[in-house]
Design a protein around this nucleic acid. Structure first.
Lengths: 214, 214
DNA sequence: AGCGATAAGTGGACGCTGTCCACTTTAACT
DNA sequence: AGTTAAAGTGGACAGCGTCCACTTATCGCT
């Protein structure tokens, strides 16, 4: 299984970068199952089949591994949002379609939080010290929820539904409302709500947002 | 210091319940300084001046201690909200005063999150297993943010600002928006925002809410 | 007042974690 | 082909949560 390699291919004990990628993948699975606290360095190395210290060749410490896992989880959330928006029919600029797409952005966000609570929590568990590089750095991730929300709001402006004056900065209250609901019902005091009640709150919140975005 | 006691006072090595209360107080200080993860059982016992195992006479495990700390932190948040509302002049039912009081609820919430990030995070870090007792149980805490938010919204109805039809369930989107902003700017991806930008988002969000609550 | 039951606190241990150091092995480049 | 830097290993340490067995102070009862 590790014997053959195409001529000219580099080969280490593991292919280059495989351990690092494996650790992130393992961490992602741990996070999926148990949230950020479950991504424990030693367990990740165990899954990859390597001794604990090997991780320190790829990450300065556990927090740096967690930061990588967190970024991956955030990317997965962003991808789900993109997919959710893409499923909505209607051409760009159509008011009704634009509204539905904004709804899809929120729905995808809440769905992800509901179906992958561990990953969702991990996505926002950026460890204290390790920020995404300096401000304006190219290391700032692209696949981000804010990107998709902004696109939906811009389309709302293009469609004439949202006045430019109201557009400015409105992504933050909207993001806050959706994110807050996800946190409160997912890990917060409202976490024990039965599914139906939770869904009602989701609809209520999306309606609230829709009224505000006008 | 431990020598004298009023006649009839009970006295153990420590006064009854003192160790338990001390552990919660110590945990609260740890949480204030470093959030829920900083609430480490052994450190709390060290502060109280007792051996680690002594904690297990009062809490089943670390999570139960954390649950107590979390409840205390939540209570402190609720008290700040109450104080913030009480500072707003104007008698009950006056539309302008009612609006200001709703704003004060949100402002106090956001202020607490800003000034006591550790406590705020701890307040919502209810450990997995230990819920506040069964649904409808008397053990459900009273000093809760939702209580104050609801009171403000009810006054808005009394003042004729908010129609009863819109009142129903609207506390959840509103709570979500405020909580989401607190989380995103406090521990989330927006945490490195300069103070002015953060304050602008807070105003933006409160305005968004005020428009929605009509 | 004295006494026994009981709760509170102690001491020592275990396994797990993150992390450090010194060492070996492997692949990449001259 | 031989050197060098990177990747992985082995062993260790302190700190954590938690368990068990033991001592001791306090309360309730007679």
């Amino acid at each position: 299984m590790i014997a053959d390699q195409p001529a000219g291919e580099i080969r280490r004990r593991r292919p280059r970068g495989a351990v690092r990628d494996g650790l992130v993948a393992a961490g992602l699975e741990l996070a999926r199952a148990g949230g950020p606290d479950a991504v424990v360095l030693r367990e990740a190395t165990r899954i990859v089949g390597v001794v604990p210290n090997a991780a320190y060749r790829h990450f300065a410490d556990r927090d740096e591994l967690l930061a990588a896992v967190c970024a991956a989880a955030m990317g997965e959330l962003a991808d789900r949002m993109a997919a959710g928006v893409a499923r909505v029919p209607g051409k760009h600029g159509d008011p009704a379609a634009a509204r539905r797409r904004l709804g899809a952005v929120g729905t995808a966000y809440l769905e992800f939080a509901r179906e992958e609570p561990g990953l969702f929590a991990a996505a926002f568990a950026l460890p204290q010290q390790h920020t995404y590089g300096a401000p304006g750095d190219a290391a700032v991730p692209e696949r981000t929820p804010l990107t998709h929300l902004r696109a939906a709001l811009d389309e709302l402006v293009d469609a004439g539904v949202l006045r430019q004056q109201h557009r400015d900065g409105i992504e933050y209250p909207i993001w806050s409302a959706v994110h807050g609901l996800a946190v409160l019902t997912g890990q917060g005091p409202l976490r024990d709500l039965p599914g139906a009640a939770r869904q009602r709150l989701e609809e209520l919140t999306l309606t609230f947002i829709n009224e505000g975005a006008t």
